[in-house]
């Protein structure tokens, strides 16, 4: 190694040192520490007791299933409502596109606690929706719109919509406009063009958005606590309870890894399924 290259290398190492130190001390070591802890019993001996509990007790499987179900519903809601927004953004003038992008992203930079509080105002017993429905005479007594699974899905959809919209919009922007013309010349109607051109072309965006929204929903805690009340138990909520209330750190650590592992496994499985099944050629580009 020449003198100048060595000096360059030394500068690079010095510049990176603080970040690597933070990463090691506040991320890598803590993660390894709780991984070890998840394989320990309460007496801190190596044991599989935590994972055995998670697999054998049907309670935890129910909670896992509820976590997956609510995350899938959130993905579905984000897809259904986010897709038209992305389509609109692709067609709109650059000014409207800018406005919509700003309005979709900006709320995301305000704390989730405050956004959830806004939902409490809207969905509560004396909230906007119940007031409107009561005034219109459609219902006699307030509907229960939160502190249940519905409230959770509404809160999560609001939180993660931005990722779905931006992911789909990105792939929408890449569609060559002449493709629409070509489809039209070949005699395809609007619906056919949409199904055979637009949908396949935006599939990578939908997949990217879905996996992101799914992963984020799986590990959401704040929205679950504020809009799900005490009745909606999901993995993040019981991990919190085990660690902060019951002080069973070993079991809490293993629940964290169950959450991490099931999320990664499902996302991988889903990606494989979509990529190998039908639209392989779309993804290979």
């Amino acid at each position: 190694m020449s003198e100048s290259r060595r000096r360059k290398m030394r500068t690079a190492v010095l510049l990176l040192a603080p970040a690597v130190a933070v990463l090691l001390g506040v991320f890598v070591l803590p993660m390894l520490y709780i991984l070890l802890m998840s394989f320990q019993n309460k007496q801190e001996h190596i044991s599989l007791v935590n994972y055995a509990t998670l697999v054998q007790d049907p309670y935890y499987l129910q909670v896992l299933w509820r976590t997956i179900k609510l995350s899938l519903l959130t993905v579905l809601a984000c897809l259904v409502f986010g897709y038209p927004v992305a389509m609109y953004m692709a067609q709109a003038s650059s000014k409207m596109r800018g406005i919509v992008t700003f309005l979709i992203i900006a709320p995301h930079l305000v704390s989730v606690v405050i956004r959830n509080f806004g939902w409490v105002i809207l969905l509560g017993e004396k909230g906007l929706i119940n007031n409107v429905l009561m005034q219109a005479g459609l219902i006699d007594k307030p509907l229960r719109l939160m502190y249940n699974e519905l409230g959770v899905v509404i809160g999560l959809t609001d939180s993660f919509m931005v990722y779905m919209v931006l992911a789909i919009a990105t792939s929408m922007y890449q569609i060559d406009v002449s493709l629409y013309k070509a489809a039209g010349i070949l005699g395809a109607g609007k619906l056919r063009t949409f199904l055979n051109v637009v949908v396949p072309m935006t599939l990578p965006g939908m997949l990217a958005g879905s996996t992101l929204v799914f992963s984020l929903s799986m590990s959401s805690f704040v929205t679950l606590a504020l809009m799900g009340g005490t009745s909606v138990k999901v993995l993040p909520v019981i991990a919190y309870e085990k660690i902060m209330t019951e002080l069973n750190w070993q079991l809490g650590a293993s629940i964290s890894f169950l959450l991490l592992f099931s999320t990664v496994a499902l996302v991988t499985l889903f990606t494989r399924l979509v990529e190998t099944k039908r639209y392989k050629e779309v993804f290979s580009s």
Binding site: F81, G82, P84, V85, M87, Y88, M89, Q91, A92, V100, L103, I104, A106, P107, V110, I114, R115, N116, F117, G118, W119, I121, L122, L128, D158, M161, V162, V165
Partner: peptide, 18 residues
């Protein structure tokens, strides 16, 4: 499409507006 986009944008900003 514009109307749907407007409704979804409203959905996302309404918690802060209220």
């Amino acid at each position: 499409l514009g109307i749907i986009a407007f409704i979804v944008v409203l959905f996302v900003i309404s918690p802060l507006l209220v």
